[in-house]
């Protein structure tokens, strides 16, 4: 082992130990717990069983929760990408004054908590909220329409809350592109659309991958926003774990849900990065 490599290991040791302690240890703990039998009196029995996972995967209620979580995460990811791309492109290419202010405006929401921003959406979307009041005043509707407690509300708020996580990886990927690649494509006869599709977009792939993974995993694990905007009926995996741990006190089942969530998120990450690498080498 050379000097520099040894130094390299030294640098990653503290963060490695921290990860081992606060991530791997609990992760192993609930992975283990998820195959133990639930007991109403002792929380769990040291009896290996598959029943937690069976319940999760075959009970229509739990399956519904899994589907809903994936659906919300996937939809949120797609819409965040659609909203973030033009914004990131503009920020990356706009050299004029005020770019710093625009960047700040994109980051600013991160400085207020998720709960604050979610309450903001309640104010907007509620039965007596800004949108309904405005629509009634305009005569478009007679009585308030149901926006809160719909998946639509959850997705819209998640898109808003997670936008910076998509904008910044995209911004980095676009700003890193040599500007004269586009000029070169132009002199070779490419129209604006072709330049975007053949040069700019493919070269944004690392940013798309990174942003999508962040938004997907964060949405799939979200609790606060689905809880507040989706209402009691709209359970997602995060809320399910929360309920099972604190209300039902079924830790083995909670562990199974948590394991499944981690597995799902991890699969998405692996698939995405695989895909990205596969395309780059092709």
């Amino acid at each position: 082992m050379t000097e520099t490599r040894r130094a390299g290991w030294l640098f990653v040791t503290p963060i490695g130990l921290l990860y081992l302690l606060i991530l791997l240890a609990p992760l192993s703990y609930f992975l283990l717990l998820s195959i133990f039998k639930y007991s109403a009196f002792e929380m769990y029995l040291f009896e290996p069983t598959a029943e937690n996972y069976q319940r999760l995967l075959f009970d229509p209620y739990y399956r519904g929760v899994i589907y809903r979580t994936l659906r919300i995460a996937a939809t949120t990811t797609v819409f965040t990408l659609l909203v973030a791309y033009p914004l990131a492109y503009f920020l990356a290419r706009y050299g004029g004054p005020g770019r710093g202010v625009l960047m700040f405006l994109v980051i600013a929401p991160l400085m207020s908590g998720v709960i604050v921003r979610t309450y903001g959406w309640i104010v907007l979307l509620g039965a007596e909220g800004t949108i309904n009041t405005a629509l009634i005043w305009l005569g478009a509707i007679q009585r308030p329409i149901q926006i809160l407690r719909t998946e639509f509300a959850v997705i819209m708020a998640m898109v808003h809350i997670l936008l910076p996580y998509m904008v910044f990886p995209l911004f980095s990927a676009i700003v890193a592109q040599e500007r004269n690649l586009e000029q070169a494509a132009r002199t070779l006869g490419a129209s604006n659309l072709r330049i975007f599709l053949e040069v700019t977009l493919p070269l944004s792939r690392p940013g798309i991958v990174m942003g999508s993974v962040l938004v997907f995993t964060l949405t799939a694990g979200a609790i606060v926003t689905p809880q507040l905007l989706g209402g009691k009926e709209m359970k997602v995996l995060g809320i399910l774990i929360y309920d099972l741990v604190l209300t039902t006190l079924n830790w083995p089942l909670a562990s199974a849900v948590a394991s499944l969530l981690v597995l799902l998120q991890f699969s998405v990450i692996v698939l995405y990065f695989r895909g990205a690498r596969g395309r780059a080498a092709a």
Binding site: E178, Q183, A184, A185, R186, T187, G189, S191, V199
Partner: peptide
């Protein structure tokens, strides 16, 4: 516009499409 001028340009940094 450049895309219809049919000029072949070799750029200083080559500007090859990296992907």
């Amino acid at each position: 516009p450049p895309q219809r001028r049919n000029m072949g340009v070799v750029f200083q940094n080559y500007a090859l499409f990296p992907h």
